[in-house]
């Protein structure tokens, strides 16, 4: 193994995950089971889709914190619209509606950032409260538990379910397929299309991108719209699986998502980020959020653990880079 392999964030995160699982299994053998795995997978779906979108934005050199608000907005509005018009709409049409709404809100971010060149963190902080405020003021602030039948159908659809020989119950929901789809699609865009390479290019150097003739604005616009569409998808999945359209949910999750992405090796300065790293980052965050107690740390320490992971996971490479720069000068 080359030295570079061991220095990569992905490798480090994977090692931490393996260590964590070893410890967890040692302290509670029941941890290592199909049940735990399927629970953790279920918990990763929404976070994973969010993270893929956030990663794309980081690669392009920006940051988006509004995606949770977009998700809730898209989910709640499409639920309300469906209930008010054609309650029997099949789930895939409700999902399409939510994705389209998400894309539209993402496009607004894209417009403000690409057209007017406003700082991405501040813009998306602003749109976060606009989207959320608009939803709660003008659409509604009631939790809706009688969802359209289509959404309930979706939450009941499984790829696989059953009981292992050891007697562990497991269930893999259809929503997992959505995550797989998003992962494959995003990987394809990033690695196999010129558009994807342009996203890396503008993240690497906006000035160089302009000089080789990349339409920087169009690429930025696409990135925020795509992140919005993914948020719309994640939102409607969250609503369906939780069997409730709760306008107060999800918002507040954005920092954990960005933490996962950054742990997975994406850099805030842009130009770096991989789908596989992001998934590893999500896995680590989900483990910490759900299974900290198994390794003997009370769950009240969850937030400390995630914070420390961010600081160590990003501080280590930053410190190495600083040392390298000092040596080179």
């Amino acid at each position: 193994m080359s030295k570079q392999f061991w220095m990569r964030n992905e490798t480090l995160v994977a090692l931490v995950i393996i260590l964590f699982c070893l410890f967890a299994t040692a302290s509670d053998p029941r941890f290592f089971s199909a049940t735990t795995l399927s629970d953790l997978l279920r918990a990763s779906i929404v976070l994973g889709i969010f993270a893929i979108g956030a990663m794309l934005v980081l690669v392009s050199g920006g940051i988006d914190v509004s995606f949770t608000a977009i998700a809730v907005f898209a989910m709640y509005v499409s639920t309300v619209l469906t209930l008010g018009t054609i309650p029997d709409l099949p789930w895939y049409l409700i999902f399409t509606l939510s994705i389209v709404i998400g894309a539209a809100l993402g496009a607004l971010n894209g417009l403000l950032i690409a057209r007017f060149g406003l700082p991405t963190l501040i813009v998306t902080l602003g749109t976060l409260s606009v989207f959320r405020g608009f939803l709660l003021t003008f659409v509604g602030s009631e939790r809706i538990s009688s969802l359209p039948p289509g959404m309930r159908d979706f939450s009941r659809s499984m790829i696989a379910r059953g009981t292992t020989e050891a007697g562990n119950f497991y269930a893999l929901p259809l929503a997992l397929a959505a995550l797989v789809f998003v992962v494959v699609l995003t990987w394809f865009i990033l690695q196999k299309t010129t558009l994807g390479r342009c996203i890396f290019a503008i993240g690497g150097s906006v000035e160089s991108a302009r000089r080789v003739g990349i339409n920087v604005r169009a690429i930025q616009f696409f990135v925020y719209m795509y992140a919005g569409a993914l948020a719309g998808l994640a939102g409607i999945i969250h609503g369906s699986m939780g069997r409730m359209a709760d306008p107060f949910s999800l918002v507040g999750l954005e920092l954990s998502v960005i933490a996962a992405v950054v742990l997975g090796g994406a850099r805030l300065t842009g130009g770096y980020g991989t789908v596989s790293g992001t998934l590893l980052g999500v896995a680590l965050i989900v483990l910490v959020q759900n299974s900290l107690i198994v390794v003997g740390i009370p769950s009240t320490w969850q937030s400390v653990a995630i914070g420390l992971l961010i600081l160590i996971g990003t501080g280590l490479p930053a410190w190495q880079a600083k040392r390298a720069a000092e040596r080179a000068a």
Partner: peptide, 25 residues
């Protein structure tokens, strides 16, 4: 450590909040 301030304070903010949670349950 030359960490970007966004990341440094995002991470430390979680740690500080986490300590407050741990202290008070």
């Amino acid at each position: 450590l030359a960490l970007p301030p966004i990341l440094a304070t995002l991470g430390s903010g979680l740690v500080f909040t986490g300590f407050a949670v741990a202290l008070t349950g």
